[in-house]
Design a protein around this nucleic acid. Structure first.
Length: 492
RNA sequence: CGGGAUGUAGCGCAGUUGGUAGCGCACUACGUUCGGGACGUAGGGGUCGCGUGUUCGAGUCACGUCAUCCCGACCA
């Protein structure tokens, strides 16, 4: 599959278009023919698989186990929890029939009216309801708790506007659902999982995030508290990258999940849910990439090193041999590497292609340099080239990969911190928010203020952040006293 | 669901007053190339989104319809 490499729209010109082209041209994903759905191509899926593997291990370290629950949810389940149905009703795909039949003219099929379901089924937009319906049968005593389940699956939300990875009708994610005997334990779990997400984002994706708690209006439907990690994209907009919800006893009550506590008294189970999705791929792409294409963090790059030979036909055998030994050594160190000696593409094409795909390190094995015992090493993050002695090149690469991981993380932090502003004047805020960035502003805690900001500027309160020291002040909109500064930004 | 735009080869597009379906990239074969996106020659590939109408004749005109994209409302 050859790639159309040329003419990647520049970031500065049209950020949205740049992003879309990047996703398609780097062969990560493409728009499916089915409305609002996405085809994830092998290269993109390989990144997702790596993410899955790492996250799965992190979950298991906290005692979580994987399980699987049904795709189809009876319609009535959804309405058990009042806020939950309110939040999701508008974007559900509904199964109404279970059979097709050939049409009268025998040249197509139609829905068989006789096969109408008595109760419609919903394609899961999230699984709280079906899981809590199942938990009811699992939980009788405090000794059955906690239950710590996670499932990797797809969900469907019939969004009106979609965008590759960031918002597709169908998306892949993990959703954790835990049940606890006490409020404290559940709250602790919700916070714990947020920390897992933050750690993953920062240490693996190299995406710095701001942890915080959502305002009431931005909360998950049915939650008492929603914790979030918010990342800043290169256009200054925020991307909600993961959420963890403390659900209180809402689902316990809705699905009548009661247990006998230590005092032999019946009590409703306490719940959390938490999830991250293929949206993380969007965060990864938008945080690091440049006008040459993707920049992938070495810890998640499917291919960490590519080796490209340059030489005359009669030198290729010698280069192949040299490359073989480097490949073997790198693989033994757990580094993924590809030797691309395809003779139908010229080196220049390969350079551009692997840059577009974000391979962190490129080695150029040139016959000329090799005579001097040198090999050219290019790092994708800075595009800097260096001639390095071929002896001990493997150790050099290993260290370089770590350095790249650190460098792109530091670069992202620097960018973000340079675009976080404290602001106390609403007129000034309205003007400056147009250029993007995160604003820390005092908020009086009312929905009215929140709504006014959104109406005036399209910006929303992303969260009450944990990481900044809080000071009392005056709400910039209402002039009323405010307890803390909140994070306000335009978001995806 | 409002406002705007677009549907012609895998992708990006041109197609004049209605008159043989085109270009670039990609693809296939052969040759020459190969240190930053190669070139030559020869090929393959189309119900012009769909339907109805006007006409001797429609990619082009009219009406209808479907789909997609962008901007809003909705959202991880």
């Amino acid at each position: 599959m050859a790639t159309e490499l040329k003419d990647l729209t520049k970031r500065s010109e049209d950020y949205s278009k740049w992003y879309n082209e990047l996703v398609v041209k780097a062969e990560l994903a493409e728009q499916a023919d089915v409305r609002g759905c996405m085809v994830i191509r092998p290269y993109g899926y390989a990144i997702w698989e790596k993410m899955q593997r790492v996250l799965d291990d992190m979950f298991k370290e906290t005692g979580v186990q994987n399980a699987y629950f049904p795709l189809l949810i009876p319609k009535s389940f959804l309405s058990r929890e009042a806020e939950h149905v309110e939040g999701f009703a508008k974007e559900c795909a509904v199964v109404t029939h279970y059979r097709l039949k050939t049409n009268d003219t025998h040249d197509g099929v139609v829905v068989d009216p006789a096969a109408k379901l008595e109760e419609e089924l919903i394609i899961r937009p999230t699984s709280e309801t079906i899981i809590w319906n199942t938990y009811k049968g699992w939980i009788k005593s405090y000794r059955d708790l906690p239950i710590l389940c996670n499932q990797w699956c797809n969900v469907m939300r019939w969004e009106m506007r979609t965008r590759l990875f960031l918002r597709t009708s169908e998306f892949l994610w993990q959703e954790g659902h835990t049940a606890h005997a006490t409020r404290e334990e559940a709250e602790e779990r919700a916070k714990q999982m947020l920390k897992v997400y933050a750690k993953f984002a920062e240490e693996y994706m190299a995406v710095p995030v701001i942890q915080g708690v959502k305002s009431e209006t931005e909360r998950f439907a049915g939650a008492l508290d929603t914790y979030t990690i918010e990342a800043m994209m290169q256009d200054g907009k925020a991307l909600q990258s993961g959420t963890s919800h403390f659900l209180g006893q809402n689902f316990g009550k809705a699905f009548d999940v009661q247990f006998l506590n230590k005092d032999n008294k019946p009590e409703y189970a306490w719940a959390t849910s938490w999830g991250v999705s293929t949206r993380l791929m969007g965060a990864l792409i938008m945080t690091h990439s440049d006008d040459n294409g993707l920049v992938l963090p070495p810890r998640l790059a499917p291919l960490q090193v590519v080796i490209i030979p340059i030489g005359k036909a009669d030198q290729m055998a010698m280069l192949d041999e040299k490359a073989d030994s480097i490949v073997k050594n790198l693989k033994a160190m757990g580094i993924s590497v590809k030797y691309d000696n395809a003779d139908n593409k010229r080196p220049g094409f390969k350079f551009a292609d692997y840059e577009l795909k974000g391979v962190p390190v490129r080695l150029v094995l040139g016959a000329r340099d090799l005579e001097k015992g040198l090999v050219e090493v290019m790092r994708r993050d800075t595009l800097e080239k260096e001639n390095v002695s071929i002896d001990g090149i493997e150790a050099y690469i290993k260290q370089l990969l770590d350095e790249i991981q650190q460098n792109i993380y530091q670069k992202a932090i620097k960018f973000r911190d340079a675009h976080i502003y404290e602001c106390d004047n609403y007129d000034e805020f309205k003007e400056r928010i147009k250029d993007g960035g995160f604003f820390l502003c005092h908020w009086d805690g009312t929905e009215e203020t929140e709504a006014k900001i959104k109406e005036d500027t399209q910006a929303t309160i992303r969260c009450v952040p944990f990481m900044f020291e809080q000071t009392e002040g005056t709400d910039m909109v209402s002039g009323k006293p405010a307890k803390a500064r909140v994070l306000i930004a335009r978001a995806y």
